[in-house]
Amino acid sequence: NNDFMISFDISITVEEKQFRFAADLLSDTTAILGKSGAGKSTLVKAVAGLIKPDSGYIKFGNRVFFDSEKGINLAPQKRGIGFVFQNHRLFPFLSVRKNLLFGRLFAKRQNALSFEEVVKVLELTPLLEKSPLRLSGGESQRVALGRALLCAENFIVLDEPLSSLDPVLSESLQGYLERIHSFAKLPFLYITHRPNEALRLTEEALLISEGKNILLGKTRDVLNRSLFLRTE
């Protein structure tokens, strides 16, 4: 289904480091794998519109997000992407309910999922009136996930969302992520350096090393070969 294909061919310079990424991501669950500093976050920030590439293009289906030749560079809020960061980044002065609704209220987003559905599947009802400052790590990550879902029109980017959680919490959040994918029907890009998370949550993987992508294929195949490449 090419409507869901994320394709890019971009060159980026960040702090004098050169990056070059080119791929067509055909699966609706793709892991972005690689060591720390390889360029995983740089790639997804470019896709999300948080960094502007020097040249090239970024497309989602037949929608062009960025094209240097045509002078197109959609603002992040126009790309319809839900973003979950490593450190949750909730707004401390808004209740959980207002955090969840933030993307809708401010970006005037339309998307497929209702507030009620997201709250139910992520089990957020008891937290709605709480301040984010009173949430545990696992609770705040579930809220961050809910907010991204309610912002997303096109797809979701998860940037190492479980790396700050202990193994038990990480395990339970992976369960939520599996459920979300089956009910939300939104493609996601999942950045991680943990092979077991990639295997459980994604079908396809893109391996990044030293600022470029070097391997794209089924997650299991890429992991088998990347151990051989000693990127982990």
Rank of each mutant, 00 (worst) to 15 (best):
S170R: 15
A152G: 04
N1V: 10
R79D: 12
S209Q: 13
S11F: 14
S7Y: 03
S68R: 00
A38K: 02
L101V: 00
D9F: 02
L189E: 10
R109Y: 03
G137M: 00
I191D: 12
G175R: 13
L201H: 10
E15G: 09
L145H: 03
L124I: 08
G137N: 01
A38Y: 06
A205H: 09
Q77R: 15
N87G: 05
R79E: 10
L150F: 03
K218E: 13
R109G: 06
G211Y: 07
S164L: 08
L206T: 13
H88L: 12
L158M: 13
I58N: 06
Y190T: 07
R97F: 12
I214P: 02
V143Y: 05
A48T: 06
K185P: 08
E204V: 04
L74S: 10
I191F: 10
L113N: 01
F4V: 07
G146Y: 08
A144M: 03
I156Q: 00
S164M: 08
R63I: 13
T30E: 04
I191L: 14
P53Y: 15
V168M: 15
Y190S: 05
L43T: 07
L162Y: 10
I6R: 02
F106Y: 13
L122H: 05
L100Q: 02
G71S: 02
A23E: 14
F188R: 15
F102M: 09
F102E: 07
L133M: 12
V64A: 02
E210N: 14
